[in-house]
């Protein structure tokens, strides 16, 4: 594996944050936003009629965001992610423009939390796939709504309190230690396709377990597919619900912000992690390698006991 351990790589991120701080923002005419804020965000997602919800403490400075829920925290930004268990940073990435698939329209939005907002609607044809209400001064997404293909609300994210950052993020960054650097590698197109249900491969990275992380995006939503050795088990997914999607069986676990799906096909175990709505998830899974059906006894067991 070509990853290598680097000490204090987060300092680079810290420097970059400082460069986008308000002190330098005044030099630019077009970007007046001071991207420093904190608050509490409530996210609710609905999968198969069952709602899951989370309350997240958010602290945002420049391109870095500190997120905390139920005593666990992570810092995300600039291609890196750090949590209590360590961190990793990605070496480079590419961009997929959402205008390939969606149209965007924006207008002045109604106020939220006493803040002037900008309403951005993302349309898929005539269908409003998502709406965002951004705080004009900071660019913070105060309210986000994502709709499923049947026009039902699938995910709602709302800031219920909002204010200035208290700079706790800086402390966490300085205390967070080491990161693994994950290198870009070529896509093994024998295993995964380059385009899946309108999602394109943006980047491919190695993983610590020796497999690949293939990052797909349509510019709005995204998901990673991880390839693992056959029969690798993923801790929380072992007992996750078995769901039938497009006549194939998968194990699925949904949090308010992302969904995980795992299955085994041929000699590869796959884990999909992403924020795609249910209708698009079904389309995506339909174009990825299909789960192996299992042996006779496994199928018999499934019929007998569900």
């Amino acid at each position: 594996m070509r990853s290598r351990r680097l000490v204090a790589a987060l300092l680079a991120g810290l420097v970059s944050v400082a460069m986008t701080s308000p002190a330098s923002a005044g030099d630019r005419e077009t970007t007046e936003r001071s991207e420093i804020y904190s608050g509490v965000r409530v996210v609710v997602s609905v999968w198969d009629g069952v709602a899951t919800a989370g309350v997240y403490d958010i602290e945002h400075i420049g391109d870095m965001e500190y997120v905390s829920i139920d005593g666990t925290w992570s810092v995300l930004g600039e291609g890196s992610a750090t949590s209590g268990g360590g961190g990793m940073a990605l070496a480079g990435w590419s961009t997929i423009d959402l205008s390939n698939k969606y149209q965007v329209r924006s207008s002045a939005g109604k106020s939220l939390l006493g803040r002037a907002t900008r309403l951005v609607e993302v349309l898929e044809g005539d269908f409003v796939r998502s709406t965002f209400r951004f705080d004009v001064r900071t660019g913070a997404p105060l309210s986000t709504k994502i709709y499923n293909g049947d026009a039902e609300l699938f995910r709602s994210s709302t800031m219920v309190s909002f204010g200035r950052s208290n700079l706790r993020l800086y402390r966490e960054l300085l205390e967070s230690g080491t990161q693994d650097i994950m290198m870009s590698i070529p896509l093994d197109s024998d295993v995964l396709p380059e385009i899946v249900a309108g999602y394109e491969v943006a980047d491919v990275y190695e993983t610590k377990s020796g497999g690949q992380q293939v990052f797909y995006t349509d510019g709005l939503f995204s998901f990673s597919v991880f390839t693992l050795a056959k029969n690798t088990r993923v801790s929380e997914l072992v007992d996750a619900d078995e769901v039938t999607i497009g006549s194939a069986a998968y194990r699925r676990f949904a949090s308010p912000t992302v969904v995980w799906v795992t299955w085994t096909a041929s000699d590869v175990t796959y884990v999909l992690v992403g924020d795609v709505p249910p209708d698009q998830l079904e389309a995506v899974l339909g174009e990825l390698p299909r789960p192996s059906r299992g042996n006779f006894l496994t199928r018999w067991w499934g019929r007998m006991f569900g």
């Binding site: 291609g79 992610a81 990275y205 377990s209 693992l228 050795a229 690798t232 993923v234």
Partner: peptide, 17 residues
């Protein structure tokens, strides 16, 4: 096979996201 912690995938996906 081996057991992998779910957080590993979350962190790596989160980094790219």
């Amino acid at each position: 096979g081996p057991v992998v912690d779910l957080e590993v995938f979350s962190v790596q996906h989160g980094a790219r996201l």
